[in-house]
């Protein structure tokens, strides 16, 4: 049996590591994300992926729910123009993004916490760059819970 390699955690306990939920697609972006792993590329362990058949099937309420459950950002790894199901997938996905962002604004959540980019089935490096850049952009925004609590307090005052 191989013993786990003991390594020091990279981030100290009080460093803010943004948690990012990724919606991927089973046939297109998820293989691209898998490829990043096969190539041993690195991104933050705060990145967690849920695979779906197609980006056009993401409910805006799922994005909201993620941001209200503790995710600091949501990244939609979309099919772009490669979708094998829907020729207007990019348009549908954009509609879902704007619905979600409208709902986010209403709840005082920064619209910058939602991002979408087309990730192809071999886009390992672009994906890694996207999530690393997104994580960096989320750091100044701080944890989503703290932001929401502050907004809530403000509204009550």
């Amino acid at each position: 049996m191989t013993a786990p390699v003991a390594t020091e955690p990279r981030a100290s306990a009080d460093t803010f590591v943004p948690k990012i939920l990724v919606f991927s697609t089973n046939n297109i972006s998820d293989p691209g994300i898998d490829l990043a792993g096969s190539a041993h590329m690195h991104y933050s362990p705060g990145v967690r992926v849920i695979g779906l058949p197609c980006t056009s099937g993401v409910r805006p309420s799922w994005i909201l729910h993620a941001l209200e459950s503790g995710f600091d950002g949501v990244f939609v790894a979309s099919d772009g123009d490669e979708c094998a199901y829907l020729h207007d997938c990019a348009k549908r996905s954009s509609r879902i993004m704007s619905l979600a962002q409208t709902a986010m604004r209403e709840r005082g959540i920064d619209a910058g916490r939602l991002r979408m980019a087309a990730i192809c089935s071999v886009c390992s490096e672009p994906f890694t760059k996207h999530v690393v850049g997104f994580a960096a952009a989320l750091v100044p925004l701080g944890p989503v819970m703290a932001t929401k609590a502050a907004a809530g307090t403000g509204a009550q005052a």
Binding site: T7, G37, P45
Partner: peptide, 10 residues
């Protein structure tokens, strides 16, 4: 692919 291989340092 989406965990051990991308977080080999932590």
């Amino acid at each position: 692919e989406q965990c051990s291989w991308v977080h080999t340092d932590d």
